[in-house]
């Protein structure tokens, strides 16, 4: 069972994070202070860390900087009340793996933690991604469903790569927009839906078992249905 260190000084937020992660089968330990957090984070038993940027003792940015300085590579999800792009960039540069703005939807937080946990487990660079009979060759830039080669636009290719790398995980629209396009603003709900719709039409052509699933209220997931 994965184990996560929650460094968060606000009790309500900490409880929320713990409850939401617990409902997804993830254990949590909570620390309210930056210095204490840094000390506990060195423990290799943790698979990921959620880190509030505004902390008593030692601020989150310093925590992650020192953590990386000590050679500890545990993935860190930074949580901050500041939504500014500059803040995000600073956080990621300091060594954070992802950035989430408060207040956040719990499913969004869980989806991001989930992505971090899996990334941690499969560090090896894969060049061929496979889900069911769908194949994506990153080197040759070829996508195949069964015996049919599919022609995808560059954006569609990037989108499919992201979905396949995190096959079986729920990916929220914001995560998709941030990762595939690299944009950090609100594009309106149906923009991502339209792009997914296009990809779906090409991937899940008539007669094939659908691979791209809509997760109601959250986002999308690419998975083989049993």
């Amino acid at each position: 069972m994965p184990r996560i260190l929650v460094i968060e000084d606000d009790d309500v937020t900490a409880r929320e994070i713990a409850a939401e992660l617990a409902s997804h089968g993830i254990d949590t330990d909570r620390v309210a202070d930056g210095r204490e957090g840094l000390r506990r984070a060195a423990d290799p038993c943790y698979d990921a860390i959620t880190l509030d940027l505004m902390l008593p003792g030692l601020d989150g940015l310093s925590v992650v900087t020192q953590l990386r300085g000590q050679g500890i590579a545990t993935p860190v999800l930074m949580i901050s009340a500041l939504s500014d792009v500059d803040e995000r960039v600073r956080g990621l540069r300091a060594g954070g793996d992802d950035y989430l703005t408060k207040p956040f939807a719990p499913d969004e937080m869980v989806a991001r933690v989930d992505v971090l946990l899996r990334r941690h487990r499969q560090q090896a660079q894969q060049t061929l991604l496979c889900v069911a009979d769908l194949e994506l060759d990153l080197v040759r830039h070829v996508v195949r469903r069964g015996d049919t080669q599919l022609s995808l636009l560059p954006t569609e290719f990037k989108l499919l790569e992201f979905l396949m790398r995190h096959a079986g995980q729920v990916l929220t629209r914001t995560m998709i927009f941030e990762t595939v396009w690299g944009f950090h603003f609100d594009p309106g709900t149906n923009l991502i839906d339209v792009h997914i719709g296009r990809l779906r039409k090409k991937i899940d052509a008539a007669g094939c078992a659908p691979l791209i699933h809509t997760v109601r209220g959250s986002g999308y997931s690419l998975a083989q249905t049993d």
């Binding site: 207040p103 719990p106 499913d107 209220g217």
Partner: peptide, 26 residues
């Protein structure tokens, strides 16, 4: 208002997960 709204959304979401996609409340 953002914080309570976010919590409200989380509760509705959890309710939806509990009832399941086939329920009449969905």
């Amino acid at each position: 208002l953002r914080t309570p709204l976010t919590r409200l959304r989380a509760r509705i979401y959890r309710l939806q997960q509990q009832f399941g996609a086939d329920s009449s409340e969905n």
